[in-house]
Every structure is written in structure tokens, then in C-alpha cells.
Write a protein that binds this DNA or RNA. Structure first.
Lengths: 163, 163
DNA sequence: TCTGCAAATGTTATAATGTTTCAAACTTTG
DNA sequence: CAAAGTTTGAAACATTATAACATTTGCAGA
């Protein structure tokens, strides 16, 4: 399965999940990082859908399956997953999505549908280049780059009242 | 004063502030929007420096000058200022900076120094174009675009321990 | 001028998000 | 096994943001 399905279209989402988990296991093995049960479960919850999940949503789901966790448990798992590039934080939503390019070095651009909530992660070279060149022109040394585009996905255009 | 000074370099910052206030007054007059005392004061506080200010920082400053305000007061003023493009919200910091291009139609790129905290706002056409073209390629209709680059400004490079 | 509406502000309470701290359990390594 | 480091548990707390409703202010029209 080399091609990744577009999240907007119906697709066998279970394949996304198992791919993500398999990738995560391989990445952690390679880097001697411990993908513990909690961390793996949090990753799986995040991959439930292509909609970003808040830390407290994760917390609630863990709670509802008997595992009573406190906020630090979730935030620690998230920190781990962020550190190894397995999830991304969407600042404009205070929420987290699975990384669609785990293991690949990339800079992400997120297309966030304000109607259905689905997020598409892109790695667009032209965007990265333009940003890095703008930073360079100001003698600024970039470290983290956040590019988040909120709008309407193809599916939701036309099916929504455009405020 | 057509050229705007770079925030990193020492500059007559009072000029930034008065320019911003004058611009804001003109913009509000043109649009029949009421730049009330609270709103103007919040704008002025935000323009105190080129470092983003949190809502509760603003609240504290209002409090320390005798005007006892509650959170909604500040958030409402911020909503107004955002609506008329007089300030920007920096999602990755949950904070607000004055808009350096008020009144001009623009898409902003923010260079945020993680050391000194100063933010430089740019309007880079190449970045906007690249992003819009990426969105178009996915048939995505962009509305809000967030581009925030965290790193080291020219002044802070070299003067910091690079973790 | 008065009156009534809409916009703006005040006030209290609460929701949502994120962190600090310290203790206990587990894992790895010598 | 023992020591050291990492991970998790648990309680409290800090920060950021909103809801709901009362009050005041500014302004247009009678």
C-alpha cells in the first residue's frame, strides 16, 4: 500500500490505523524508544479518525475504557509521540493528529476543514522553500514551522452555509 | 515615516505605538467601528513592545492601573481588535501582537524568537502563493492561514546556548 | 427631550487546557 | 541482586477561555 488514501474520501480507515501503528513500532525500535502500552494506546486513539483529538478527549476515552488516567499521563504520552514525530500538534485547535509521514523528514502544511474537522497533512516543498527563504532574508534561524490552513475541504464546499 | 523599523533593532518604539494608534483610529472611523477607551487601551498595551502579550497579562496591567477588569472584558476587546485586523493572535503562544500592516490586505508570516520573544510580522507573497497553490491543488478553499516560525532572531543567534 | 433599541461593559461563575510536584512501579544495566 | 534511570500514578494547581445574565452607554427616531 504505497499510496495513501485521501482522508476526505471514504477509505478503509483501519488500514490507516494499522499502518500507523506498524510504522510507530518500527520507528521506536530503530531509535531505542519505548512505545509502551499507554503511548501506543494514545497513538491509536488519535488515529481513530482524521480529526484532531484534544488531550482531554483522549483522557475521557481512556477513562471510559477503565484506564483511569490523569492529565499528565496523556500529556506525557503526547510529548513522547511528538518527540518521535508520530503525531503533530495543531496549535490553532489545541489538538493532535497522527503524522501521515512518520519517519520521513518533512515540514507539514495542514489543511483543516472547519466544517467536518478533517485534517489533511501535506509536505509541500514550495511552501517550505518560500518560508525558509523568507526567514533567511531576515537572518532568522527557523526551528519549528507551523503552517495551518483553515477552510473548507472539497466534500464540505457546497454542503455548507458559507457564513 | 514610510519605512517601518525592524523590531529587533533599537528603535524609537514610541513611534510604533503612536503610528499604530493613529492607524487604528482612522481604520475604525472609516468602518464606523467604535474604538472605545477600553479597546484603545488594550491595543496600546499590546503595542508596548514587539513581544506578544497574553490575555491575562493585559488583564493584570489593566488591573494595576486601577481599572479592575474581568477576563471577558479583555477577550471582547481582543475580539474586536482581531475583527478589524488591528492585532493578530499567535496560536502557538496563545498571545497577541499588534498588526504591523493594519488596513492593508495581507497574509502574515510571523518570525518568533524563542529567546527574546520578539515577533516580526512579514507579508511574503511567495509564501502566500505557495500555500494557496497547495490548497488549490487539493481543491481546498482556504479561509484563515496561520504561518508561525519559531527560532532565533539575528540578535539572539550566538548569544544563546543552543540546546 | 424623551424613549427605546442595540451595542458595549460589568460581574460571577465555570469550562477547557496544561503544568508542577512528589511518590511508586517498572526496566535496564552492572 | 542492587543501583540508576525511566515511566507511570496521583493530587493539586496554573493558565487560558467562555457562558450567562445584569447593567450601562450611545444613538436614532418619535
Amino acid at each position: 500500500m504505497p499510496e495513501r488514501a485521501l482522508p476526505y474520501r471514504p477509505h478503509n480507515h483501519q488500514a490507516c490505523v494499522s499502518q500507523a501503528l506498524t510504522d510507530a513500532q518500527a520507528i521506536c525500535r530503530d531509535q531505542n524508544a519505548r512505545l509502551t502500552p499507554i503511548r501506543e494506546r494514545v497513538l491509536e486513539l488519535i488515529w481513530q479518525s482524521h480529526k484532531p483529538l484534544g488531550a482531554y478527549d483522549i483522557l475521557a476515552q481512556l477513562g471510559s475504557e477503565g484506564h483511569s488516567a490523569a492529565p499528565p499521563t496523556v500529556y506525557r504520552a503526547l510529548d513522547f509521540l511528538l518527540q518521535y514525530g508520530l503525531v503533530h500538534r495543531i496549535s490553532s485547535l489545541n489538538a493532535f493528529v497522527g503524522c501521515a509521514h512518520a519517519g520521513e523528514h518533512h515540514r507539514s502544511t495542514f489543511l483543516i476543514c472547519r466544517d467536518c474537522g478533517i485534517v489533511l497533512e501535506l509536505a509541500v516543498d514550495a511552501v517550505t522553500k518560500a518560508i525558509e527563504s523568507a526567514a533567511k532574508a531576515e537572518a532568522f534561524l527557523p526551528e519549528d514551522i507551523t503552517v495551518e490552513i483553515s477552510g473548507l475541504c472539497p466534500t464540505c464546499q457546497g454542503s455548507t452555509t458559507h457564513a
